[in-house]
Every structure is written in C-alpha cells, then in structure tokens.
C-alpha cells in the first residue's frame, strides 16, 4: 500500500525551524558571520543587480573541441589594451602637453626622476608595439581559421575598426614625447594624410588645427590619444566581446564535422 503524505499540520503546531547560532538557535556568532561574509556580500550584490547570470553567461560557455593557444590572442590584445590604459592614466598625471618645452621636459622628468617613471613609461611604450603585434596576430588567426564567416561577419568588421583605432592610437601617441624624432615623424604622418585627394588637405588641417604645426597641435593629438580613441576602443571592445559570447567560438578548421552514424551505415550498404 502506498504511503500517503502526512496531512499538513495547522500553523501553531508546526515545529519551528532551527535558528542559526551556536546551539542551533540565536543570532549567528561573529565567527559564523565572518565565515560567510563573502557569500553574504555576493548575495547582497546579486539580489540587487542579478549580475551573476550575466557573468555565468559570459564565462561558462560551451567551447568547441580542439581550441588551442591561438584562441587566446584576442584576450591577449585586450590585456595589452588594459595595460596601456592603466599605464597611460598614470603617465597623464605627469605629462604636460605644451609645445613650448613643457612636453619634452615632462617626459624627461617621467623618465629620469619620477619614481618608477621609466618603468611605467617603458611599459606604455613597448606595450604599444605589443598591442599592435597582438592585434595583427589575432586578425591572422581569425582569417586563417575562417572564423570571420557567417554568423561572425559583424565581429570581424568591428575587429577591423578596432585595428584602425589601434593604429590611430599609435600615430597620435608617437608625437607626445615631442622630441625631434616624434616631431618629424608626425609631420610626415600628417603630410601622408594630406596626400589623399580632395579631402586630404582638410584632413591635415584638422590634424594640425591649422595650416602649420602650431600651439594646439600637440594638445589636439593628446586629447585624441587619451580620451577620444580609448573611449571608442573600450566601447567597441565590449561589443566585440558580447558578440563572441553570443555567437560562440568557431571550431578550428581541421575539426571534421560530426556525421550521423546511421547515415554512414546506409552509405556502406549501398
């Protein structure tokens, strides 16, 4: 005979649930509260933001078999950008974008006198090259693995825009030390822009803020370098990452598509 469920007891007769505490009742002891502090904080946040779902969606994804180290080049580029952003913010605390000697002097101060200045500037300088190299390697990986194909075309297009923005960062950042090399390299770079027919002359005027390399050219490059483009890169990088999570990672091209066993048997019989 099946066991029938017990009938529900009226409320006053139900046993009271155990209370937390040393002997199973009373408020939690400080030790218990400390033990569960992490959970409490995360619960408090998650109850108000529901972020855990999004984080789980972003980080715990299904990944095709056969992925390898080449798939980390995009993340590597992102971390190179984050490194540039952090070191750039701290360099900006000392840098003075003044044409009349201030820029060069402030860079010299960072390099020769500021505590860890040479290190942070070195990180930023060499990190710039690293980021350009990584973004090209990442692009090559995506191209040769065919990862740009449907449905990931938009991810590719945004990636190309990110590549262009990164190169614009390189161009605008090169002037900032304001020594002979960076000055003349920027003159040449601006004049290359001027070489474009019809809009070239106006583009170079825009970059220089006038017909000659003047007092506002360097601050203009600086503002583009540290505010305009980093903001665009961060926003587009976020969208790029969203698309990666949304569409999933493509399988490596050498991975054979799984075929239906039954279909294969049919084929051998025929």
């Amino acid at each position: 005979m099946p066991k029938l469920p017990a009938p529900p007891l009226p409320k006053p007769l139900r046993p009271k649930p155990k209370r937390p505490g040393e002997n199973g009742n009373g408020p939690p002891t400080p030790a218990e509260a400390a033990q569960e502090a992490g959970i409490t904080v995360v619960d408090w946040l998650d109850e108000r933001t529901s972020l855990s779902g999004g984080i789980r969606w972003m980080l715990f994804r299904k990944v095709p078999p056969g992925v390898n180290w080449y798939y980390t080049l995009g993340s590597a580029t992102m971390f190179a950008f984050l490194s540039q952003a952090v070191t750039g913010v701290f360099l900006a605390m000392y840098y003075v974008p003044s044409v009349n000697g201030g820029a060069y002097e402030s860079v010299r101060y960072i390099t020769d006198q500021a505590f860890l200045g040479q290190f942070v500037r070195g990180m930023h300088k060499w990190g710039a090259s690293v980021m350009v190299i990584l973004i090209f390697l990442h692009m090559g990986r995506v191209f040769f693995f065919g990862a740009y194909k449907y449905p990931r075309e938009l991810t590719w297009v945004i990636g190309v825009v990110l590549l262009i923005l990164t190169l614009m960062m390189s161009f605008t950042g090169y002037l900032l030390p304001f020594d002979q090399q960076s000055y003349w390299a920027s003159i040449v770079g601006v004049n290359i822009n001027a070489g474009g027919p019809l809009i070239g002359p106006f583009l170079s005027d825009f970059l220089r803020a006038g017909p000659e390399f003047g007092a506002t050219t360097l601050p203009r490059f600086y503002a583009i370098h540290m505010m305009l483009i980093p903001g665009l890169i961060a926003a587009l990088m976020g969208f790029h990452l969203y698309l990666v999570a949304k569409l999933g990672i493509s399988a490596p091209p050498w991975l054979k598509a799984e075929t239906d066993r039954e279909l294969e048997l049919d084929k051998t019989e025929v």
């Binding site: 044409v99 000697g101 000659e212 007092a215």
Partner: peptide, 10 residues
C-alpha cells in the same frame, strides 16, 4: 618664425 609664440617648435 612661421608660428608665433611657441618657441623653437614654431
């Protein structure tokens, strides 16, 4: 002097 007021760079 092709740009006034910016020292050597001008």
């Amino acid at each position: 002097e092709i740009v006034q007021g910016i020292g050597e760079a001008g």
